[in-house]
Write a protein that binds this DNA or RNA. Structure first.
Lengths: 205, 205, 205, 205
DNA sequence: TATGAATGAGGGTTCATTCAT
DNA sequence: AATGAATGAACCCTCATTCAT
């Protein structure tokens, strides 16, 4: 069937993609060898170059997978008439945690190779990073305008703190290869981040 | 005189060290060439191997510089009879910001090459990371015991959020190569991080 | 109809042939990729192997095209009862110039890839080169026997000088991608070569 | 001795240079492998890159050797007050023949890889080729002005014919790997080229 | 100490050729 | 006849490290 043929082609590309995810996660971008990726995908050496122009291109494909999903979410959030900042921030948190559950390697690579590694940042990659920051900042600013978030700090500072908390949570899990056990734990993590971000760590009693 | 010779030796070693800082900051550990570092230090590249066993060893020396300072601080904090958690957290923040001011490259490398890049983490390096986490966690736990910090979250979670906020602040500055202009700005940044961490981002009015 | 199918086959083979001419002229034999040739011919690159055994084989087909025409001419000249050496040499010159006009790439490839490049010369190819040389030499010898050409030089030397002049003329045109504008210019070029070859460059006044 | 040390360094570079000459002559530029050259020079692989930036650079060094010598000669000829065109042309011929004797591979490479192979011609290389052509043309024009050479042909045409004859002579020798046996033969070859170029191949009796 | 020549393993990429469909 | 996915040998180049001086 035609559909199958198409599926086969996609399958192979997908196999390479996933192999790349796995190998890059293991060894990092620089130490990941194209031959490793090919072997992991169960194909020959040169075939990788049939589907991806070169190593850089393969890396970009992975990065794009992450950003595309995230920007789709941010577009959703922006277009939302809902003024509930809590919900918006919660959705951002869930994007990280959901992806962490479904595609652990992708989050790992984002954290280790993109988020912090300035050496892998081409200007194009940096741009998307800044864009995401500014979209999040817009959510913060909106919260300040609606008197939901305190306005005595710059929205930018709030953004740093929020994303920093989120990212470090995920990073720490990445660091120890911790798995999220079920949706209950995921909810608890999201609650913690949001609660502390909103109400602070100080004992309010 | 012996003393002078030693000084000379130290000078040369120091020159290599600083050159390595600069180059690794620019290119990242993997792309930093020993020859780049030697050229930057104004010596032949063979000589680098006189002072450092190999590239890995040179990298470790840099990492150690960071951790040594930080653990000295943490030891100070731990040994402190003072029960003021605020002050302790503030001192941690200042270690990051001070080092950022005095030795920008060092913080940059810590952020980009150590803090997040799991691929550079030998088990030895990972251990120190975890140790720092647990020392910070001890401060949090102490705060919870003294009813200064809320106890409805794990101390580990509070640690993540605190260090995440701090780290992302510095990361963001690293990312845009931002300089801290004077102690006033440094104070403001420290205040923001601490205030939001303790009292939350929610408008309390 | 069979005839049409054959024609179609020939058409496709011819298309590949011409594409190969164009690409090899542009990039040289070594850098010409089979995929380039296929793309230029408007077919898939696997199909090239249906018509030509391999790259070498395709190259040989091109070379043969050149030599076949030239040897046919030389056979004509040899079989000619006419003793006019001038005419014979003129016909050789015209073969180069005519082919240059009608099939520029072919001459280009002959000059750049066959005539001088010893590395592309298999013994088979070298043989035909030598054969052509010796056929031309026979014309020279005949001219010497008939007292038309001077006999105080070896016929071989005369051959070198004649073919050298001819070839360099064409080479120079190839080098600057010069087109021959009309038959008048072609005649003038042929006259110049022949006149200088026969009467010398010295001012005879 | 210091002199020896310098000599040693030069020796190694020279060894690579000569190995490259030999290998490129054998296989042509494209098929010559850097590893072949290193092996031929009796050194390790990477050392070639210590002395030459890359393969292209090594090739250029060879080309330069040829052109430098030739342009030095042409400068000499141009600066000459002597108006004897014969002598000037003879000196050009001797440059080719002398180099052929002393450095056979160099002439071979010039003929096969530079003179005719347009695919190896970067614009820089082409420029020098044209420059040499125009310098020779100046000699021809001078001969025409002094009524030594006939003026009913363009100086450019005379240049083509002269250089063509010369080049083809050498080419033919290259092709059959013919060695020049002694100075006597060299003189005879030079005489033949010059005599036919000046007085023509026609029997004058 | 100091130099930089020398080594060679390693890895990215190309591309002719084969083959299943 | 036709396609283009698949293979893998080749080959250039980099660079950490060693070593003779």
């Amino acid at each position: 069937m035609k559909k199958d043929l198409t599926a086969f082609k996609k399958d192979k590309e997908q196999a390479i993609f996933e192999a790349a995810l796995k190998i890059i996660k293991q060894k990092g971008f620089h130490k990941a060898r194209m031959s490793d990726i090919a072997k992991e995908a169960g194909i020959s050496y040169g075939l990788v170059y049939h589907y991806f122009k070169n190593k850089e291109d393969l890396f970009d494909a992975i990065i794009n997978r992450w950003w595309d999903g995230l920007f789709k979410l941010m577009a959703n959030i922006s277009g939302d008439n809902e003024y509930d900042v809590h919900k918006k921030l919660r959705r951002i948190i869930y994007y990280f945690l959901d992806t962490y559950q479904s595609n652990y390697e992708l989050v790992n690579i984002f954290i280790t190779e993109i988020s912090r590694s300035t050496t892998n940042l081409t200007s194009n990659r940096l741009d998307r990073f800044k864009k995401f920051m500014s979209l999040t900042q817009a959510v913060m600013a909106e919260g300040q305008e609606n008197d939901i978030l305190r306005a005595d700090f710059k929205a930018r500072y709030l953004t740093y703190i929020f994303l920093g908390a989120l990212e470090t949570f995920v990073s720490a899990m990445v660091l120890v290869d911790q798995k999220i056990k079920g949706d209950a734990q995921k909810d608890r993590i999201a609650d913690s981040i949001l609660e502390v971000f909103l109400n602070g760590a100080k004992n309010q009693k």
